[in-house]
Design a protein around this nucleic acid. Structure first.
Length: 687
DNA sequence: GATCTATCAGGCGT
DNA sequence: CACGCCTGATAGAT
């Protein structure tokens, strides 16, 4: 069960130096504070010789600090429904009489959040299964939006503006989430990210349709998607400012766009590197930092992973060169205040990633404490504020460190991990990239005994039926409106980067009878692996699969390959006790990919091109490929999409696997195999 | 080609 | 309301 711990933050210091008497020279009080407390805003402006000025800090006795910290850890008012009546313990170690009043003020936590939570608990009780249709707790307002949009395909351009509340000034920390809560929030995050990606790609393709291909600058789908979701009230965590980790977001999660971070509530600034609650909104007038992005934009940064020397912002010209002294204001002051109160900040690293042109990948690396803050001379000779951040111990391994490790594994696996490799290419060059086999926990080396299949083997009669495949005549690549686009319902299934736009019952890729080149945008899954995969042994899931490369959401991963059996063969094999795959039993996760029902009320899952229920079995007991080792999960990161390209027989599509989210390197891939008891609880088919 | 630089269109938060 | 900000895509240079 989770609890929201409100921050009493700075109001707990009534005995801070008052304006009466000799003022502290390093502290200047503002005029007319709107509460009984004195607002203390240090105004130290670095002058020409800023280094002579000491860093301003509020005076605070060790006892005061102790009181504050203990009140934070002792007070865990629980806002969840079934503990709502629990009286709050207000007799904490602090002698502050105003705490009761403060507590009651903070008790009034967002009605939205509470009722949403209550509704959900009512609906699901203690059931351990999450309904994919359950409402998002955090962002979705009570009154669900509803005016029907006339045309879903064009609706992006006629989005009705809705309540567009700004960010909350309520500072909270979310702690002690139970397993079920974690799963729920994870699910909310997953679906929100899927929605963002679907909108982003849709926005780009719409813009292209409007302007015609290759005309002008490509639309900023990242901005458009965020805009649409903001208008719909679909941004997460806008109703409170969360200090510490964000529910549903795990360390190591990766994002491709700054706006995506805003939508998820991980970092609320579209460009700025320091996100903070501004002093004007804070209960005592002092700003508090909540997250930073370490992106290499400042020359004075030093980043060694667990320890960061972060440069404050400001003082740069439009070419990002340091040209003047920084000031202790905005985010700079917020970081200093966060250090003062011992409040942790989230750290997101922006890392250059090879596959993306002059673009970055953002990795959530967890929580850091600010240990020091000082004014220093930067490399260009101007004064900059520097913050020494140390990563809080006991967190999962840093995502950026894992990415670096995966990077080195790709180039020199044996020197990174001298033992454990059973094969440096399971596919024996049948795939375009090697598939590693790695086990450093036991002596199992079962996978080496199987022949490797690159693609599914279909029976000859699969090709015999429906041989009159019509191909396109697009010699220089398919364009909108070509015959192959028509076969897919008038639109291509993939964007120009080969990402799946929207899941469909089946996808027709261009095939042998098409005149288009191999680079045609309608040939994606037929080209095989694009990510270096590794089959590995784990204590939890037996054999599993992970990637050494980032897999972007919507990207093709690999085929689920096997040997297709006739009904008679399948019966024999079953009696033999062999493990068979029934492609029709995979959960229809493709329908979640590109599902925009929260945006367009009349959105319906695609039904065209349609496909009859699949009725064949696939044998993987002798020949198999890497997919067979993927684990089962009810919240998978990989989906199954049926694809046809080398024959036209609806009964025998290829089972193609696509990423449902951005999958960081070395994170285990998982599929929803469907009904659990079919597999006797096995975590993957081929253990 | 691959990498860098300049430029441009942008949106959000303060 | 203007402006600053550790964007992101693209064209052109090297």
């Amino acid at each position: 069960m989770g609890s929201i711990v409100p921050f009493q933050d700075l109001n707990l210091f009534p005995e801070l130096p008052q304006t009466t008497g000799a003022p502290n020279p390093s502290v200047v009080t503002t005029t007319a504070p709107p509460t009984p407390f004195t607002f203390l805003t240090p105004k130290i402006e670095p002058k020409q010789e800023p280094l002579d000025e000491p860093i301003p800090t509020l005076t605070q006795t060790p006892q005061q600090r102790e009181n504050f910290l203990s009140s934070l850890s002792n007070s865990t008012p629980n806002f969840l429904p079934n503990s709502e009546t629990t009286p709050l313990s207000t007799n904490t170690s602090s002698s502050n009489n105003d705490q009761t009043a403060l507590y009651s003020e903070y008790f009034r936590i967002s009605e939205l959040f509470r009722t949403a939570f209550a509704k959900r608990l009512q609906k699901y009780g203690d059931v351990d299964v999450l309904d994919p249709d359950s409402q998002a707790i955090v962002p979705v307002p009570e009154e669900q939006p509803p005016e029907p949009e006339p045309n879903p395909e064009r609706a992006l351009s006629v989005v009705v503006s809705r309540q567009n509340r700004g960010r909350s000034n309520e500072l909270v920390r979310v702690t002690n989430l139970g397993i079920e809560d974690q799963r729920h929030f994870r699910d909310v995050v997953r679906r929100t990210r899927m929605m963002y990606d679907a909108l982003r790609i849709l926005a780009i393709s719409e813009e292209e349709k409007r302007k015609g291909p290759g005309h002008g600058r490509r639309a900023r789908g990242d901005l458009r998607a965020a805009q649409v979701m903001r208008e719909r009230g679909l941004w997460l965590n806008r109703d409170k400012r969360i200090v510490g980790s964000i529910p549903g977001i795990e360390i190591g999660d990766i994002f491709f766009f700054r706006m995506e971070l805003c939508v998820m509530g991980l970092h609320g600034q579209a460009q700025a590197g320091i996100d903070y609650l501004p002093g004007s909104q804070s209960s005592n007038g002092e700003p508090i930092a909540t997250s930073i992005i370490v992106s290499g934009g400042y020359e004075d940064d030093e980043d060694s992973g667990d320890s960061i020397t972060y440069t404050g912002h400001g003082g740069q010209d439009k070419f990002s060169r340091q040209c003047m002294h920084q000031k202790l204001e905005g985010g700079n002051l917020a970081l200093e205040r966060s250090m003062h109160y011992g409040i942790e900040v989230r750290v997101i690293r922006g890392i250059k990633y090879e596959n993306r042109v002059s673009s970055k990948v953002y990795v959530y690396d967890g929580l850091y404490n600010i240990h020091d803050c000082y004014f220093d001379v930067g490399k260009s000779g101007f004064g900059v504020y520097k913050y020494k951040l140390l990563r809080i111990a006991g967190q999962p391994q840093m995502g950026s460190a894992i990415m670096r490790f995966a990077e080195s594994l790709r180039t020199r696996p044996l020197s990174c991990r001298p033992t454990g490799y059973l094969s440096l290419d399971m596919s024996q060059t049948r795939e375009n990239l090697p598939v590693f086999l790695f086990n450093d926990i036991d002596s199992d080396h079962d996978p080496v005994y199987y022949d490797y299949l690159r693609n599914t083997v279909f029976p000859p009669y699969a090709f015999a039926q429906g041989t009159n495949i019509t191909g396109c005549e697009c010699v220089s690549g398919c364009t909108e409106g070509c015959i192959c686009a028509m076969k897919n319902g008038g639109e291509f299934a993939y964007d120009h980067n080969g990402l799946l736009l929207r899941g469909k019952p089946v996808i027709f890729e261009c095939g042998i009878n098409c005149k288009c080149p191999p680079t045609c945008r309608n040939r994606v899954s037929q080209h095989g692996l694009r990510h270096r995969l590794e089959i590995f042994r784990s204590k939890e899931t037996g054999w599993g699969v992970r990637s050494l490369d980032i897999i972007q959401a919507g990207a093709f991963i690999c085929e689920y390959a096997g040997v297709v059996l006739t009904k008679e063969q399948a019966q024999v094999f079953t009696m033999n006790g062999d493990t068979l795959i029934y492609p029709g039993r995979f959960s229809e996760r493709w329908a979640e990919w590109g599902d925009l029902s929260q945006i367009f009320t009349e959105y319906v899952r695609p039904t065209y091109p349609s496909i009859p229920p699949l009725d064949f079995a696939m044998d993987v007991s002798r020949m198999r490929n890497v997919a067979c080792y993927m684990s089962h999960s009810i919240s998978p990161n990989v989906l199954v999409q049926y694809v046809l390209y080398d024959h036209n027989n609806f009964m025998f599509p290829h089972l193609m696997l696509f990423a449902m989210e951005n999958i960081p390197p070395l994170r285990e891939l998982s599929i929803d195999y469907g009904v659990a008891d079919e597999w006797n609880g096995k975590l993957s088919i081929c253990n």
